[in-house]
Each structure stands twice: as C-alpha cells, then as structure tokens.
Design a protein around this nucleic acid. Structure first.
Lengths: 331, 331
DNA sequence: TTGTATGCGTTATCAG
DNA sequence: CTGATAACGCATACAA
C-alpha cells in the first residue's frame, strides 16, 4: 500500500500552501496560472486523489446518489431496471457522482431506508423509479428537502418536481396506428387494471388512436394484473367470441407473451404487440414498444446534477421522451 | 431539515460524556448497563445516526463495497447479474454495508477505476464477477492489499483467494444424466470455445457423464461464441448429419434458444437444455440449469465480511454451490 | 467506568 | 493571490 497522499503532501511537493492546492481543485480561476500548473503537475506525479470522506465532512456533500434495487419480480420486465441502472451509473460517473444501491421491498420500507441512508451517508440525491399516484416517497423526500428526480411522472401534478418519463400513450398509439395501417379494424387492448398512472396512460394511447381513426373500442378493452397466465386468460376471452379482435395491444411483454399463447392455441390469426422490448420479445419475435432507457438515465442524471450543482433552486423540469415501436413477426 | 444530531447532542441529552456515547456504540460491554440503556434511549429519541464520513476519517473504513455493473450484452443473460446484484445488496445491508456501483467496459478500464474508487472513497472491499484465467483484476487487488471475493473461481489456482461459485460441471452433468435417463444415447454439446474457465467446466460435466455411462462423445462436441445465431448455426451442423444427435446440451440459454430454432426448422425431434434459467427459458419452456444466485450473493457477502471484520487475515475460503436442473418442455 | 485532549483531510474565513 | 487557523463528527489514548 503506497503512502497516503494528502493535500499537504502535494503542497510540500509543489512548494505552496495547502490552501492553494485546495483552491486549484475547487476554484482554479483564483490561482495564478503558473502556480496552478505547478500544483497540477504535482498532483499528477504523486497520484493524489481528494479524500471524499474529509471533503464530505466539510461540505456536507458526498457525491453519492441512491437508487433502489428491487426484487426481480416477473423476470421478464426485470431487465428494464438493469439497463436503466447501467445507464445511470455511467452518467453519474461522468458527472462526478457514484451510485449507491439500496434494497427495499415496499414503499414503507423504502421510506424507512431513506432516513437511515441520509443520516449515515448524507446522500446527495435520489433517483426514484416506478412512480404512481400519490407517491409517498416523493412527498417524504420533498418534505425533508432532499433533492431527487423520478423516472416516471408525478401523476397527480406534473409540476411537482423534476422527472423524466417515456410517453407510454405515444407507444401504444404507435402500435395501434401500425396495426390500423396493416388493415386491422378490431384492435383490442390487454392492460392493467385502471388506476395506475403508467397503465392508464398506455391504455389512453390505444383508445384515442382508435377513436381518431373512427374505430369503436367498445367491448375491446380488458383489465388484468400483469403476468403471462393472466394475459393468456384475458386474450382467450377476447378471442373466444363471435366477432373476435384481429389484433391485441398489450401493456407489457408478459401480457403479450400470454396473449400470444392464446392466439396460437386457439388457432386465431391475431396480431400481438407488447411493451418494453425485453429480451423475451427479441427471442420470440414479439413486436414491442421500446423505451430509450439509456437516454432516460442520462436525462435523470442531468436533472439531478442541475438540482445539486445549481447555485439556486431550479424549477421542476419535466422531460418526456418518445418510445419506438420495434416491428417483429407478431404483427 | 431537522437540526443535525451529533454524538455531542446525544451525550448532553443522556447526561454523559461524548466518550461514553461512543463506547456504547463501539464497545457496549465496557459501559454500565444502566448508563448504556439511558444512552440508547437518547439515541432513539433523538434519531441519532453515526456520521459515516466522520467515522470513516477516523477508522479508514467506509462500510462500502463495490460491484461492477456491465453493459447488458446479450440481454438474455443480463438478468443473471441483476438477480445477483439484488441478493448482494440485501446481504450487504444485513451486514451493515452498502453497495456502490461502478461501470467498466473492459478489464483495463476496470483496474483504472479501482484506483479512482480507492483513492476517493476508500472502499472497504470488492466483489468481482466473471472471473477467468489469469484475471488481472484479482492480481491487482491482491497486490494492493484490497479485500475482495469473487463470484467465479480463480481458475488457475483455487487457493488463491476467497470465492463463491456454482458447479457448472455438475449442472451440465445433471442435464446429461437426465437425458440419458430419458433414453437418449447420442447427446451433443454446444459450448463456448475452449479456453474459458466457465465454458470448459461446463463442457467437462457433459463429457465425463457421457463416458461414465459408456457413451462416446466423439464428434458430438462443438465450439462457438455465445449467441442465438451462433447456437442455431452449430446445431444445424450437428443435426444435418447421417446419424444426428437426439439431444443437445448447451452452455447458455442463448445458445439453447438458437439450437431450438434449428431443431424446429429442421424438423428433427431433438431435446435441448440451456444454462442459467433466464426469463427467456421460462417463457419458451426451455429446460435449463438454474444457479442459486441469491445464495451465491449471500455467501459472497459472508466471505467478504469475514475478510473485513475478521481480527486476523482469514485463509482463502472456497464455496462451491450446486445448481438445479429445471425441467420444462424441451426435454 | 467516565471525562479530556488530539487528529483524521478537507474547505472556509480571514489576515497578509 | 497566498498563507495561517479553525471547524466538520468521530474514535482513541490517556488521565482521572
């Protein structure tokens, strides 16, 4: 283990005071150019790295941001968080921040964790995922003055805080438009029960596109919890009908996988689209709506960094990104 | 934002000295019970949490461990890291540690990151994944005296450091034995090119099981990089033969997915097994070898904690866990 | 068993 | 622009 290199070591090596070294790091413009360069050279030679703990003690900032990692539920949609995390870690690194993971099963447990995390590590900020109506986590953080951004809208009040989201309605609208363009007239929707922000948004895209094209959605809208079995069940009910739909727009790849099973088993030639473009969709050739997760992550970091590094409080900044329809064999 | 609660606040509240509070936290046994309880009550009332930065500055330990997050390559096998990460974060939390993520594209970049991470955050330890022959990362960490464990064996020297791994040979052996039990006699292997620790291990399990059963592996062993297309290509070559194999044991779910395509397209009724039990396997009904990732993660943390909290240097501790064959429709 | 003094590495304040 | 000094919160050696 090499001898510890502190700011004092650098100061001695560069023949200046410690403070000058600190200035070179934190306010380079107030140091004479010649001195600045000499100090920088010393830093490079000695391999000096500012000690975060000491810096944090003085400034109260840790350059650490926290993200929750949740139990892989379905497995199918688990890869979404994975890709998001990777993008976030990269973007954070570029901005000089690191990502700290914390586990939490539910919202209550998550809030308890905030308290712990903030007390002990003084985290600079949070990135929340999976927002929903009346999100207690956002309320808690706002109340305690903790900077945060969310991947997902604050569904009750879009101006509440900074967020990044993907336009789910636009995603299902793209899928629906594509199906209409391919000649489909009876296009059903297999989605989650009404009441969730994300689910309702995706449903709205299908419905509005249908009515805009003069098609009637009546009797073609189904609600079910997420899951392959659930998707199959609901699709079966839709298809087992005198005048069955010829296409099914689904809120998730899990539901779409189930719907596809129903389609194949019943022998009805119906088109199916999913949502999230998971690996499963790629493998089974499922047409699916793809979210630009790397960009979502990068924009989340941008907003958070603006919040953290900004001199004055930034007004909430909403970012809505467009998804892409990835066409495959099921349409 | 509540007023900051320090050890002094607690001391005042409990009518003791700061030192006593510190003792209650770090060496409870040397404090009189009555005092101890009073201090603990104050801590609870005030919601005091030891400040990690200050503690770290004094002790040199951050209670942070680092794990690399890599770009989702295939997508199919990406979920493996995801599940592992979750288990690790939970286990770390239970042991009083937190997980810090760092991105790295290749081994060289990873080592450069170590230097950064250690200089700035003084991380307590690392968990490395995807070890291979002559792993430069492990060498670097060992050389610099940084505690670490690996998920994956040090293939060149099993006694080199502490590790946790899943017995890949046992996994493919289970698959092969199951196929033999089902009456198969010509069982081929679709695996990665020789030279990788993991790949060779899995291949060995197939080969030894075959020969132990008096079956001849000659001409049934194929090497290819990972990927669906590659798996399909190789399987096609194997099946397009006078005396084709009736079963294919594959090193990954990606290869198995490809093999399955070849099987279906050629109309040969051959059994197929994969490795990792990814969501894709679940969806398409692929029999696959499942790794106990949550347990791997927990054991990794156990070993690392032993390394970190142990009074004296612990001898390297190897942990080899058994995988499980998950039977589905493709066998 | 409890209290007192000191230093970890950094940045902020203030005098030169 | 540069240099000295204090303070952040905690843990430890030492004295009481």
């Amino acid at each position: 283990m090499a001898q510890k290199v502190t700011i004092a070591t650098v100061a001695r090596h560069a023949q200046v005071s410690r403070q000058t070294v600190s200035n070179v790091l934190n306010a380079p413009h107030i140091v004479r150019e010649e001195t600045r360069e000499r100090v920088r050279a010393s830093i490079a030679t000695l391999g000096y790295r500012a000690n975060q703990a000491a810096r944090q003690m003085r400034t109260g900032r840790s350059r650490l941001i926290a993200v929750r990692i949740e139990p892989t539920r379905d497995g199918i949609n688990g890869s979404v968080l994975d890709r998001f995390l990777h993008g976030l870690t990269e973007a954070a690194g570029a901005a000089g921040y690191r990502v700290l993971l914390y586990p939490a099963a539910d919202a209550a447990g998550e809030i308890a964790t905030y308290d712990d995390l903030l007390g002990a590590y003084e985290l600079d900020g949070f990135v929340l995922t999976h927002t929903d109506h009346g999100d207690a986590r956002a309320d808690w953080l706002a109340e305690h003055g903790v900077p945060f951004v969310t991947f997902g809208r604050p569904w009750d009040d879009p101006g509440r805080h900074s967020w990044v989201d993907v336009d789910g309605a636009e995603g299902t609208a793209q899928a629906t438009r594509h199906l209409i363009g391919a000649g489909h007239r009876r296009i059903a929707f297999v989605g989650w029960p009404a009441g969730s922000g994300v689910g309702d948004d995706r449903r709205a895209g299908w419905r509005s596109t249908l009515t805009a094209a003069g098609l009637d959605p009546t009797g073609l809208d189904r609600e079910t919890p997420d899951g392959i079995r659930q998707g199959e069940q609901v699709a079966r009910e839709l298809l087992d009908h005198a005048d069955p739909p010829t296409a099914l727009v689904c809120t998730s790849d899990s539901l779409a996988v189930g719907a596809l099973r129903a389609v194949r088993e019943l022998g009805h030639p119906a088109a199916v689209t999913g949502f999230d473009d998971t690996p499963v969709a790629q493998v089974i050739g499922l047409t699916s709506v793809s979210q630009p997760l790397a960009e979502v992550a990068a924009r989340c970091m941008d907003l958070l960094v603006a919040l953290l590094d900004g001199a004055r409080p930034t007004p909430p900044d909403p970012v809505l990104l467009a998804p892409t329809l990835v066409l495959r064999q099921t349409t």
